[in-house]
Amino acid sequence: MRVTFTVNGREQAADDVWEGESLLYVLRERLGLPGSKNACEQGECGSCTVRLDGVPVCSCLVAAGQAEGRDVVTVEGLAGDDGTLSTVQQAFVDAGAVQCGFCTPGLLVAADELLERNPEPSDGDIREALSGNLCRCTGYEKILDAVRLAAARTGEAV
């Protein structure tokens, strides 16, 4: 089947999609957007988190057909058109929140959504919002630092 949806602001179509394929598979293997990651493909780790009509979802649990006509934002859509990193991306780099980096794309999409909804999150809010995103390298401390940093920088800019 053919699936057509908007990805990071651009309409994209994928052909020959088998009905059982996930949105994650279509993004990674058919649309050349491998930024969303495949750590568990069971909806447990959050590494494939994308926003579907603004809502963070595990793209491994969304059938590709469910995305038909909808709006998807992936990690590849966070930076500016000129390549300028978004505030949360830059904060992850600066705070040392990236080690192997496999969890990073999903965490960025989740953190970006958190800060949009709650520009001054408490530590408890950050932990709750990111509790669906597993990281095995960092022990999460630098990820907390990064989200705090992104919130502070966003606050300064306003």
């Binding site: 930076a79 992850f92 990236v98």
Partner: peptide, 22 residues
Amino acid sequence: STLRPDGILKVTGEFAYSSDLW
């Protein structure tokens, strides 16, 4: 505490992990 040289690739989704190869 210099920053990782692969940090930007990793936060933009461009870093090529072994499962991303095509």
